[in-house]
């Protein structure tokens, strides 16, 4: 279970310029739930994702995941928490463009130093599941947007995380590829993963497998 308690996040843009991204946000997400965070650009959706993934720390309040307060984790423990629990699909995919598909998917496994057979097995499994195995050795920068997104999804799932976070996942996709992404989401949901999506794409409204839609406006839950 994920719990955000009285979260406020203020970004220091410069010495005299502070931006309040979130203000007193309270949110509880149950295990296996699929949540869609809706709202305009700059409303604070991505900040919530970033706090749940321990990519940043709240200015005040607590982020609790499975009973552990992750908002105060030291940097190295936050990395380990992400490695073990979070699969993050970034808006711009955040792949290493000069590496191959396989090398990109391997990256989250590198710190674990697994046996090559074990690593290969995991990589092959996610590549098959997200239909990118035919591009295994292709360099990522030469792939289409849809293919790059599938690589990002495969990378987010290679460690079999409990929580999948996706930030504007369809922002760079055409309609057909967006529909395909929804199929992937449905599959992930069937695996009982907790999924949190931040989007302003109307495609996500009223989907049967989405448990809750939460509207964010000016850093507050509406």
């Amino acid at each position: 279970m994920i719990k955000l308690k009285n979260i406020t996040k203020i970004y220091d843009v410069s010495k005299n310029d502070k931006v309040k991204a979130l203000e007193n946000v309270n949110l509880t997400i149950k295990e296996g739930e699929l949540i869609v965070l809706k709202g305009a650009s700059g409303s604070g959706k991505s900040t919530i994702l970033s706090l749940i993934a321990a990519l940043s720390k709240p200015s005040s309040g607590e982020v609790i995941v499975d009973g552990k307060q992750i908002s105060k984790l030291p940097d190295n423990f936050a990395s380990i928490y992400r490695r073990d629990n979070i699969g993050f699909i970034f808006q711009k995919y955040n792949l290493i463009p000069t590496l191959s598909v396989k090398e990109n998917i391997l990256l989250p496994l590198v710190p674990l130093n697994p046996d090559s057979e074990e690593a290969d097995e995991k990589i092959q499994e996610v590549m098959k599941r997200f239909h990118i195995e035919h591009k295994e050795d292709s360099v990522v920068r030469n792939l289409s947007g849809g293919e790059q997104q599938r690589v990002a999804i495969a990378r987010a799932n290679v460690n079999n995380p409990k929580i999948i976070i996706a930030d504007e996942p369809t922002a760079n996709l055409d309609e057909k590829l967006s529909q395909h992404f929804l199929e992937i989401l449905r599959e992930l949901k069937s695996l009982n993963k907790t999924i949190i999506i931040a989007t302003h794409d109307p495609l996500f409204i009223g989907l049967d497998f989405v448990d809750r839609e939460i509207e964010i406006h000016n850093g507050k839950i509406v």
Binding site: N76, S79, I80, R82, I86, N94, P108, V110, P111
Partner: peptide, 12 residues
């Protein structure tokens, strides 16, 4: 930044 976001520690 990407490496850290996907679970690499500072040590890694």
């Amino acid at each position: 930044g990407i490496l850290k976001a996907i679970g690499w520690t500072v040590d890694d």
